[in-house]
Design a protein around this nucleic acid. Structure first.
Lengths: 229, 229
DNA sequence: TAAAACTGTCATACTTCTGTTATATAGCCG
DNA sequence: CGGCTATATAACAGAAGTATGACAGTTTTA
């Protein structure tokens, strides 16, 4: 269901960082601390995507890449290489060893996520069928469906757009006016209090067997979506 | 507070366009339809950024620029000039009248926004920051959260704005009147003693397992934020 | 075309925040 | 150490912001 990302990286800090962020984005994450382990894990469960460090003990990133490309299951799996600035060579910029893209450390998380999405979209479009996931919440823009865990929820059109908007910028607080502008539309006039009502309806709809309310009220500022675990 | 952008432009269509887009980006926007009005507005509330048309009735953009540069408050304020293609002269391309950048109409909104961000980043970096950190204290403007170490704190709206203001200028002492002006707002009248109360509330809220109080009282002068270790 | 679903608004009950004041405390100066 | 002034704090009433159920008008669906 969720895309499975395999991260092969020997620095613990980066491993943790990636794990955290990918999980937050709704991926299943596999972690390997060296190339050998990476290959084994890739064999166990074929990843939809691989992030791989360039310099690693035992097996270098290049070598991991080569071997992955030799197997049928992973021949077409997108791979992003991570390198330190100092390692930036012609070889890597040319990506002539089988990777699809590379990023220089330290990299920006949003950018990495964006590139992953881009590559995933190309490689396995069905996986990214315009679905946004945060924790147990899942919203499918194409088929207009919302699920919390296994349960499918029913939202009205306005609640759906509201949730979509929230889930596109998790954590960020939007004022009622901003929400009216983006979710309702710029030239429509509705009372800003109406937002409250729809937030209430959304909350009610999202409430499933006692899970936490993912919408945070910020007094005198607006509302925000907080990715539930 | 949000960055305040002053737009001086005589074409209504462009004015509206800019207002809409800047507001959406989270700026406070001031609109002036000619140079004179622009100067007055700039005097009333010092802008963080100015967008100014090149050709305008009464006062030309160049002249507006010159006068802005003569005042202390706006001497360093970034200015972007807007010109029509036909007006593109050596003078403007050289920016030798005090503007920081210029754009030819019709311009692309994303590009304009990018340039504004770039200039703002240079001129007043903290304005664009989503999170400001000092020592163990961290304030996130976008998601409206405050953390001290690992602990998330709860502040009332006024305390939040107060802290934000302090953290943008660490170490600097503000009088009660200054605080009332910037944090409460120019035209609101409240007792200056009220500031004491809110400072007290802020201190209380920031107090986490014995860490030092980051707010310093300056007798007979005001308060200052001292970055905690 | 009737029934069902959805919207926006309002009134009401709450909750949280604000500004003020009164009183206690602390800093400064001779 | 007074005496003076500035600041800290608690208490409180009123203000402001939010949640929620009800309702009437619309739109969509069956």
């Amino acid at each position: 269901m969720k895309p499975y990302v395999l991260v092969i990286e020997d620095e613990d800090a980066i491993l943790t960082l990636l794990e955290y962020n990918f999980q937050k984005e709704g991926y299943d994450v596999g972690l390997a601390t060296d190339g050998e382990m990476g290959l084994i894990m890739a064999a166990e469960r074929t990843p939809d995507f691989i992030i791989c460090d360039w310099m690693m003990p035992k097996l270098s990133g290049v070598e991991v890449c080569r071997r992955l490309r030799r197997k049928d299951e992973t021949r077409a799996t997108p791979i992003i290489m991570l390198t330190a600035r100092s390692e930036e060579t012609d070889k890597i910029t040319g990506l002539d060893f089988g990777a699809d893209d590379y990023m220089v450390k330290p990299f920006s998380m949003p950018e990495l996520l964006a590139r992953v999405r881009a590559l995933l979209r190309r490689a396995s479009p069905t996986l990214l069928e315009d679905v946004i996931r945060h924790g147990s919440l899942e919203i499918d823009l194409k088929s207009v469906r919302v699920k919390r865990g296994e349960k499918e929820l029913h939202l009205g059109p306005t609640e759906f757009r509201l949730l979509e908007h929230f889930m596109r910028s998790p954590g960020r607080v939007f004022s009622r006016e901003q929400l009216l502008d983006t979710v309702w539309g710029r030239d429509i006039y509705v009372e800003s209090r109406t937002v409250d009502v729809h937030i209430g309806r959304l909350r009610k709809a999202l409430k499933v067997n006692g899970e936490a309310d993912p919408i945070r009220t910020v007094r005198s500022a607006g509302y925000a979506f907080e990715p539930p675990l």
